[in-house]
Design a protein around this nucleic acid. Structure first.
Lengths: 202, 202
DNA sequence: GGCACTATTGGCGATGTGTCAATAAGCCCT
DNA sequence: AGGGCTTATTGACACATCGCCAATAGTGCC
């Protein structure tokens, strides 16, 4: 006779348990949109009572914010290494780096990006906006505009990042563009913006 | 003594009632994000039983889709009028038209755009994506590339629209850019893309 | 004025979420 | 080894929202 264990309750280190639940949440939110993932699902798959999820992460949205944060956390590159050579080379290197990162984590990246607002949700927007800020500052730094940039300049850089994001989706999600096309589009526009647009925001 | 009417039930034409409820929904979804608007709110403000909302619009998301559709429906311009003159003039006219439309309906436009996915919700994405398609086709038409464009070209045009959207937010929501700066950014990048990027997608 | 059509209501059942007191797992100390 | 204590974990309660549907009552028509 098979011995059916009554799934005894196990007690883990808070950090361990927290991370375990988080990994389950990352997987689920990567598969289905926010509304279609219930904390009950997360708890059940993690083999845990639903109350525990709330205990560790507070509200469901808090958990989701944590997930998006992780998904958008990108191996921060040594930006200094990009800030070398001709402008054309810098743009090329930066775009390549972006495309590498994005294509490597494509599914989770797409999920996180298209989380752009739980229909305008303030908190989620803030998290994404922060990630965009980091990327934009990276762009500016690569062209030696990194220290104390005026707000307008940062706005323009963020716009460019927005273009990169949108074009990335066009490549990875829609499949309307291939990597080469995305590459030319992004390098070309980046160079024109650095040359002709950025100077307008002194 | 004040005569307190017992709010008698009133019977309207289905079309009228539907539109009345829809207008309330448009207002509410323009003010708060999706999750913070309940069909109960909509019904109460419309002075109607909640069941009626479901009766006319089906599910809550269906109602929301309808709202986003209306918000994104833009006075379609006579594109032909944009397709005149030098490329620089065409770009200028197109960007100006976009900025006019967007600034006029700024609040509802922002709400609809930042609805970009109820965290990746498929249906909402489809509606927004459709609006982007229309705009992208407009861009192509303005430069005489409108008939039977290859999919890659449409993808590039959509990317540009994505840039425009993102830059618009940077202007109207963040306030990091002023209209002039947005204008130069969009015209400059549009011209480079038409000149140097679009040709790559034959 | 009565009747039929149907717009409108109100309540039921199901699902999901946050909270909190009760429970028990596992370590420490004797 | 065993009893006690900390606290990780549970389970249930209260509340909100949603979709659905039979019952109700305006309103125009004969």
């Amino acid at each position: 006779m098979v011995h059916v264990e009554a799934a005894r309750r196990r007690r883990l280190e808070p950090d361990t348990r927290r991370e375990q639940i988080l990994s389950v949440a990352i997987r689920l939110f990567g598969e289905k949109p926010y509304a279609e993932v219930s904390t009950t699902d997360v708890a059940r798959i993690a083999g845990v009572a639903r109350g525990l999820v709330n205990h560790y992460f507070g509200t469901k949205k808090d958990l989701y914010l944590e997930v998006v944060r992780v998904m958008l956390t990108v191996p921060s590159v040594a930006v200094e290494r990009l800030a070398e050579g001709e402008p054309h080379q810098r743009a090329d290197a930066m775009v390549n780096w972006f495309l590498d990162v994005v294509s490597r984590h494509s599914t989770s990246w797409l999920a996180a990006i298209s989380a752009g607002g739980i229909a305008g949700d303030t908190d989620v927007d803030a998290v994404i906006s922060e990630a965009v800020d980091v990327a934009a500052d990276g762009v500016l730094a690569a062209f030696g505009l990194g220290d104390q940039p005026p707000e307008a300049l940062r706005g323009m850089a963020r716009s460019y990042v927005g273009l990169a994001i949108y074009t990335g989706r066009e490549w990875l999600q829609r499949g309307a563009l291939n990597r080469d096309q995305v590459h030319t589009l992004l390098t070309t526009t980046l160079l024109t913006m650095v040359d002709q647009v950025f100077p307008q925001a002194r």
